[in-house]
Design a protein around this nucleic acid. Structure first.
Length: 263
DNA sequence: CGGCGTAATAGT
DNA sequence: ACTATTACGCCG
């Protein structure tokens, strides 16, 4: 037992120092958006009409009826205070607000998990059982390979929760990435090729971001830092414009920056 | 290492 | 809504 503790101590992750920046407008936008969406709801820059905005208690969604997928989800996580403990809900639900009306059955025996974008536990532990239930709407779900969803993606969700606890609060944008060869489940749900997640932390005047791009095919034990990318890259691959409410110099700087290590 | 919590699946 | 099963990280 002592030996295990010593080994854990030796291999525990080291914290990294941040970049420095100032931004006032973003903070106002963030408040105005009920504090879920950092520096504005992502804007659609691709062809056609783009995703439809859906609002929930603890997160917002840009949903595409064409792909039968959410294209982005945005939320804020606070530090966990009281233990708001509810059970994990037992089933997923059709979101009647969508035209696609995707059913949970469309995923059964396909080899794909029903992967949460806004995470069940991270939302439920901060905003309560009702908010947790909303994360089981199919408008929050994308097809994910089990090795990604249950291993690598899960570790990323645990990491964001740890950051929220450590830094008071963080903001998150997350969603799927599709290439040009469309592959669908039987019911018409398109299968993503990658998933992205952007973590945002504000500390006084400083803003920092951690953008990830993860492929479906992983073993699951890879270091998360190997999937760090830039917001610019995510914008190119998704046709979304994030953080447009930031003043241009800061937006340009932050979105072009590729971190090399985790916080 | 063992026990627990969380990510899930399938089947009744 | 419940059971059984699997895998992994955290914790002590």
């Amino acid at each position: 037992m002592v030996a295990a503790t010593v080994i854990w101590w030796i291999f525990r992750p080291a914290p990294a120092p941040p970049i420095s920046l100032r931004e006032e407008f973003a903070r106002r936008q963030t408040q105005a958006e009920r504090n879920q969406l950092y520096a504005g709801a992502p804007r659609w820059t691709g062809p056609g009409s783009g995703p439809v905005l859906l609002r929930n208690q603890a997160y917002a969604v840009g949903y595409s009826d064409e792909r039968e997928n959410p294209l982005w989800v945005g939320y804020r996580l606070d530090r966990i205070t009281a233990s708001q403990h509810g059970k994990r809900p037992s089933r997923f639900a059709v979101d009647r607000r969508t035209r696609a009306l995707t059913s949970p059955d469309e995923y059964t025996r396909t080899g794909f998990d029903r992967g949460h974008l806004a995470p069940s536990f991270n939302i439920g532990s901060r905003f309560g059982p009702d908010a947790q239930l909303e994360t089981f709407l199919m408008s929050n779900i994308v097809p994910q390979k089990p090795n990604l969803n249950r291993k690598l993606w899960k570790r990323l969700e645990e990491l964001e929760s740890e950051y929220a606890n450590r830094f008071e609060q963080i903001w998150v944008f997350t969603g799927p990435v599709f290439d040009h060869r469309r592959q669908l489940l039987e019911g018409g749900v398109e299968i993503p090729d990658f998933l992205y997640k952007i973590l945002v932390d504000e500390d006084g005047d400083r803003i920092r971001m951690l953008p990830f791009l993860l492929p479906q095919e992983v073993r699951g034990n890879e270091p998360l830092s190997q999937y760090l990318t830039t917001v610019d890259e995510i914008e190119r691959q998704t046709g979304l414009d994030f953080f447009w409410a930031l003043s241009d110099p800061n937006e340009d700087h932050l979105e072009a920056f590729r971190p090399t290590r985790l916080w």
